[in-house]
Design a protein around this nucleic acid. Structure first.
Lengths: 223, 223
DNA sequence: TTACTATTTTAAGAATTTCATAATAAGACT
DNA sequence: AGTCTTATTATGAAATTCTTAAAATAGTAA
């Protein structure tokens, strides 16, 4: 997670930066709009803390630019203004939150986490293989791979447990509604699908069989 | 967009409900935790307004349940408590925002929109396809496209979630007033409309079906 | 109100896709 | 070789989605 702090008070921005680092976030500091613009341009931020009053202008004027670059970047405005109109203006222009100065660091911390929690995706990324369970999509080296339904679920389950042996029973329990009503052969069929549609055309080997024990997803990302 | 209001003061919850309807949101009211639990169970909410003090317990105790059902549901806590500890507690347990009572409706309005907004404005612009939900208008390569009513709303909902799979249930909850009174077939019909009136004449494919899981708007803007 | 129009919903058969099975082939181990 | 496990493929059944048209509902203007 990368956070940009746009704030000109050196004491404050340093405190914020240090505090955020403690919680495991990467953070950069910009002390004016100009620098901020540059940073936004070269890096992708998950969240931006934005002071309203900056030496070279109003922070909130940056919001449209930020949002146009990436809608997914959350913006929290920090402002000394405590009138209702300012808050509305900030939110209206696209801020995701508005916190009045002086604020409690713990509350800011919590609000940041609340914002970033949203991005809790469970995308599996191994080398240049990307599996997105939410969207039921597989991308390998930029190419989309056609694999749907049960075989996709099996692949996902295995890929999440990279290098581990997963038994057929485990797969059945995890993916089939009523595991005892189907023969274990369904998995063999699914595995076959995966090999046909993923391994074969791309010339890679993702799932290997461990005789009597199950299957193991084993893919380093290297050829 | 469907919003659940969990609030026992009848005047307030009615005001909120009416206000939200004016802005085009579907909303339901629950006056206690028990009812709320039921509603959460049967419908998918994009956002939940949650009063802290309810006749049968603390509202914030519902947050873990809400989040475990769908982490995409945003929760805004409304509370009469204005101490720092309460706010931290609410955020820590998973709330996405905390607003102290009495609050200004306009600010609440803005904060709701900040949560639900997926981009800067609400005009959806992908390549040379422009969808304007406010005016219920679609422009593709300068050409106006005739698509109104429910099918338009379905398209909008899908387009706002570009690339994501949206289930029929979610569509029903978001767009129909009483989702359980209609069959899911209405969506199939709406999708068909979209394909007839948007995809076919313009020779593009916007919404693809993901069998068993729903539909996905998938349009890069490129041919 | 009445007639007319547009939109929404229902219904039902067609078309498609997925799933599980079974039968057979291939491979591994003793 | 003989036995056991896994791979492969085809096929039929089941489930889901598509399509179309008619019925119902809501909306508008005369």
């Amino acid at each position: 997670m990368r956070i940009l702090i746009i704030e000109d008070e050196v004491t404050l921005n340093q405190t914020l930066s240090d505090g955020l680092k403690e919680f495991g976030y990467q953070s950069d500091i910009a002390e004016n709009i100009n620098d901020a613009r540059y940073m936004i341009d070269i890096r992708n931020y998950d969240l931006i803390l934005l002071d309203w009053m900056l030496p070279d202008g109003n922070g909130i004027d940056l919001i449209p630019e930020i949002k146009s670059k990436s809608h997914k970047t959350a913006v929290i405005v920090l402002s000394a203004r405590d009138d209702k109109e300012s808050e509305i203006a900030a939110l209206r222009i696209g801020a995701d939150d508005y916190i009045k100065k002086p604020f409690d660091f713990e509350i800011l911390q919590m609000r940041i986490e609340a914002k970033l929690r949203f991005g809790g995706s469970n995308i599996i990324e191994i080398g240049d293989l990307v599996i997105n369970p939410e969207e039921e999509k597989i991308i390998y080296q930029g190419e989309s791979v056609e694999l749907k339904g049960k075989p996709f679920e099996v692949l996902t389950h295995l890929a999440m447990r990279n290098d581990q042996i997963v038994s057929k029973e485990q797969l059945l329990d995890a993916i089939w509604e009523e595991p005892e009503l189907v023969t274990p052969n369904v998995i063999e069929v699914a595995i076959n699908q995966i090999r046909q549609k993923l391994d074969k055309p791309l010339n890679i080997t993702t799932v290997e069989t461990v005789r009597r024990r199950g299957y193991r997803f084993c893919f380093s990302g290297e050829a």
